[in-house]
Amino acid sequence: MAYVPPHKRHLKSDATSSSSSSITPARKLNHKSKTINYVYAENAKWRWLIVGLANESRIPDLTLLHPVSMEFFQQNSGENPPPLTLMLKEIGAKNDYMENPWLYVAKTLKQDLLFSFQEVNKLMKGFEFGEIKPSLVARFGKILFHGDRSISLESINGSSLPLDTMKRLSRSFYTNIPPSYIERITSEFIPKVDFKFEEEKQLYNLKISDKMRPDISIACKCTVAKGTNKLELYKIGLNQVRHLVADMSCLGKNLDLRLMLFTKKVSVALTDEELEDMKSMIESAVLDSEVEGGVRWPLGKQSSGDRYTVIGVRYMKAQTYRNSVMKLNVRCADRFDYRSSHRDVAEEVSLTMPGIISQLREQNVNTDLALEMLKKNMELIWKNF
């Protein structure tokens, strides 16, 4: 059965309510959210920046917290009141704004980047070449503010707050991009910066728990086998580990930005019997466009014996473009977590930076070159997104 994107599905009237309430707006920016657990390295760095103003003291004068546009935020998310986003409330003088915001980003994150680069480089030296795969990714979306126990959204809606107060608020990074923006990227941005189409692919990513190793989860990339319409194991590894997350509220821009450095272990030591058990569990899946994530299992087939269990699934249809320094990914993702019944549906855009990552593979990391490459990449992003 062909996969039908969620926004094009025709739901029965009695299913609309339950389906709508299962869609949540974002993944929480904490180490262990109510819905999805993320793995952070022991010395991971985590930053939030406001980018665009020349003087931090002018933040309360020129910004306010405003309900996020419904173009970005799914109205049926179930969150009431809707979260807030940071925006300019008035146009300041020319000297209120940074001339080159990308230089500020590189300067502010320099020490965290250098530390994280060195940590990843040390990690890679402890494994065989190619066993640890690092990635540096810029993702586009909106930083949403959800208040906290002492500050309600109603009390700060439309308010201008000091930076220290905003830092206390719970935040999330919402990656769903409006269709109009996706269209602008494909029709304007891609030709302008000389990106060339590389490939289009459809994958089902399964997240599998292992009772023998409860501290990790196994990531299985699967394709659809021709002729059988069944899932087929393509790659197996461990879920990503985050080393640096830097979220940026980009004033004067339509989108905010997340810069993230993470690693994946791309091989898992399994016996032939263990691998066959996992393949059998994967191949028993039934493709079904009417369910979350596009996959379901017959009763009792979602687990393999007492050891492996599918705890999450993500369907992804992605188009990849590449130029000499970066790779652009435009994708539709439909994620579902079986433990929490949390669903996340999004049209997403991200840029990976393989040129910078190549420096991490060197015996001695050329940090000056890596930072210079980051400045150029951030300049391209700021001027074109």
Rank of each mutant, 00 (worst) to 15 (best):
G126N: 12
K253E: 04
S19C: 11
W297T: 09
V286M: 09
A93G: 15
F117M: 10
L371Y: 05
S152H: 05
N377Q: 14
A44T: 06
S267N: 12
H66D: 06
A106W: 03
K279G: 06
S358C: 01
K207G: 14
K253G: 05
W46D: 15
G227E: 06
D306I: 11
L136M: 11
T85H: 04
I190M: 04
V295D: 05
N205S: 13
K122Y: 11
I236A: 08
D334H: 11
V268A: 12
K125G: 09
M281A: 11
K221Y: 07
M87W: 00
P298S: 06
N121K: 08
I182D: 00
E347Q: 11
F385M: 06
D256G: 01
Y181M: 02
R307K: 11
R184Y: 02
I357W: 11
Q118R: 11
E276K: 14
M87F: 07
I182V: 10
L86K: 01
G141L: 00
R296Y: 07
K226V: 10
N176I: 02
K235F: 08
E131C: 01
S33V: 07
R343A: 10
Y97P: 01
F127R: 09
K235A: 03
E290S: 15
H31I: 13
C250S: 06
G126W: 06
V193H: 11
N80L: 12
E232M: 11
L161M: 13
M87E: 08
M124E: 09
S69D: 10
P60V: 07
R213W: 09
K226R: 13
T228R: 06
F336G: 04
K301G: 03
C222P: 01
K45I: 04
P101E: 06
Q118A: 14
S341E: 13
N229E: 15
D334A: 10
Y308C: 09
L351I: 09
V345I: 15
Q111A: 13
V286S: 02
Q302W: 10
S209Y: 08
W46S: 12
L86F: 05
H10C: 10
I282C: 01
Q118M: 11
K110D: 13
E347R: 07
R307G: 05
P67F: 07
P67R: 02
T223V: 15
S341I: 03
E232A: 12
P25K: 04
K317V: 09
S350T: 07
K125Q: 15
D288K: 10
F127P: 01
T352W: 03
D164N: 15
K89C: 02
L53G: 02
S57M: 10
N254S: 06
S303I: 13
I236D: 00
F73V: 05
V295M: 08
V349S: 03
L251H: 00
M281N: 07
L299F: 15
N76C: 12
G312F: 00
H66E: 12
V295I: 14
F336W: 08
L206I: 03
G147D: 05
F140M: 06
F73I: 01
S160C: 00
L136H: 05
M378R: 04
A26P: 01
Q302P: 00
M260V: 14
K94G: 03
